[in-house]
C-alpha cells in the first residue's frame, strides 16, 4: 500500500475502465475497488461493449475490467478491437476479465494465463488481482511518456488468439453456429434477391448491422454479422484478417508490409486494398 501511495504522488493516478452491463454488479465492483485500491481512478464506467471500446480509446486507461457477457460486444471482442486500434506509442492496458461461473471460460483463462475474476466477486480474490496489478505498475511506469515496447500488446494478442480457439462459444456468449457451409449468399437488392456463389466473393466487410459482400461486379449488403456468418464459411478459403474483414484467400494477390509493420493486401479482381490487423498479422508470415 505504501508503494501505491508513493507512486500516485509521482504520477497521475492509475485509471481503470469498468465495462459491466448489470448496474448492480458494476456498482459493487466499483465499491470494492474503491475500498481495496483507493488511489485507482474509476471515472470510466460503461455498460456495453461499444461504449467500452469508444471510452477506452478516448480515455486511454491503464487497466480494463471487462465483463465477458455484454451486449454489443463481448469482453473478448472489446479486447480484440482495442488490440487492433490501440496507438502504438501508448502502453496497452492490462486486462482483467470478469465472468460469472463458467467452467469452460475458467479453463480457457487459466490455460492462457489471462487474469480473470469470477462473479460473485470475493473480496479476497479481488485483493489478489489488485496486488498483481500494482506490482505490474511498479515495474512499468504508467502512462503516456513511455511507448509500449510491444510486450503487453503482444501478450494480449497471443492470449486472444488462444482464447478464441479454446472457448469460442462460451466466451463469446453465443451459441455454436451451424457447421453447414453456405454455397450461395442471398442478398436483397430492391425487390430482387441477388444470388452470389460463395466462390465469387472477394471479401466481406462488416459495418454496424450489415455485411458488405464484395464481388468483381458489385457489392451487396446482407443483414448479418461476421459472428453469425463466419461459422458458415469454409475456414480454409475465407480468412478473417481484421475484426470487420473476411477475405477469400484465393483472391489475394500480395501482402505488403510497410516500415511500421502494417500489412496491406492487394487483390486479384478488385482495386480495393485491405488492411490486416495486428491480431491476424501472423497469418501472413512467409512459409
Amino acid at each position: 500500500m505504501e508503494l501505491t501511495t508513493s507512486m500516485s504522488t509521482q504520477h497521475r493516478p492509475i485509471n481503470a475502465l469498468i465495462a459491466e452491463d448489470e448496474p448492480i454488479l458494476s456498482a459493487t465492483l466499483q465499491r470494492m475497488l474503491n475500498k481495496l485500491w483507493p488511489e485507482l481512478d474509476l471515472s470510466c464506467v460503461v455498460e456495453n461493449g461499444f461504449e467500452a471500446v469508444q471510452s477506452a480509446l478516448t480515455s486511454m486507461p491503464d487497466v480494463l475490467f471487462l465483463d465477458i457477457n455484454m451486449p454489443g460486444k463481448t469482453g473478448l471482442e472489446v479486447a480484440q478491437e482495442l488490440a487492433e486500434e490501440w496507438p502504438i506509442d501508448k502502453a496497452f492496458p492490462l486486462i482483467v476479465y470478469v465472468t460469472a461461473y463458467d467452467e469452460f471460460a475458467v479453463k480457457a483463462f487459466e490455460t492462457c494465463a489471462a487474469d480473470y475474476i469470477l462473479k460473485p466477486v470475493s473480496e479476497a480474490r479481488l485483493q489478489k488481482t489488485v496486488q498483481r496489478l500494482q506490482s505490474h505498475f511498479q515495474t512499468r511506469t504508467p502512462n503516456v511518456q513511455q511507448p509500449d515496447t510491444g510486450t503487453d500488446l503482444e501478450r494480449v494478442i497471443t492470449q486472444l488468439r488462444e482464447l478464441q480457439q479454446l472457448a469460442r462459444p462460451t466466451l463469446t456468449g453465443h451459441p455454436v453456429m451451424p457447421t453447414e457451409k453456405l454455397a450461395v449468399i442471398r442478398a436483397a437488392v430492391g425487390n430482387n434477391i441477388r444470388m452470389i456463389p460463395i466462390e465469387d466473393v472477394i471479401y466481406f466487410e462488416a459495418t454496424d448491422k450489415y455485411i458488405n459482400v464484395v464481388t468483381a461486379e458489385h457489392s451487396s449488403l446482407i443483414r448479418s454479422s461476421l459472428r453469425e456468418l463466419l461459422p458458415q464459411l469454409d475456414p480454409h478459403l475465407f480468412w478473417q484478417i481484421h475484426r470487420s474483414t473476411v477475405v477469400h484467400i484465393k483472391q489475394v494477390k500480395m501482402a505488403h508490409k510497410d516500415e511500421a509493420g502494417k500489412i496491406t493486401l492487394t487483390l486479384k479482381n478488385s482495386d480495393d486494398k485491405l488492411s490486416v490487423s495486428r491480431v491476424y498479422a501472423h497469418l501472413f508470415k512467409q512459409m
Binding site: 448492480i24 454488479l25 456498482a27 459493487t28 465499491r31 461461473y101 466477486v121
Partner: peptide
C-alpha cells in the same frame, strides 16, 4: 443454469449493502 444462478447471487451480494 449455473451462469444464471451465480449472476443472480452476484447481484444479491451487491444489493445487500446498496
Amino acid at each position: 443454469e449455473p451462469h444464471m444462478l451465480f449472476n443472480t447471487l452476484a447481484n444479491l451480494q451487491g444489493l445487500i449493502s446498496i
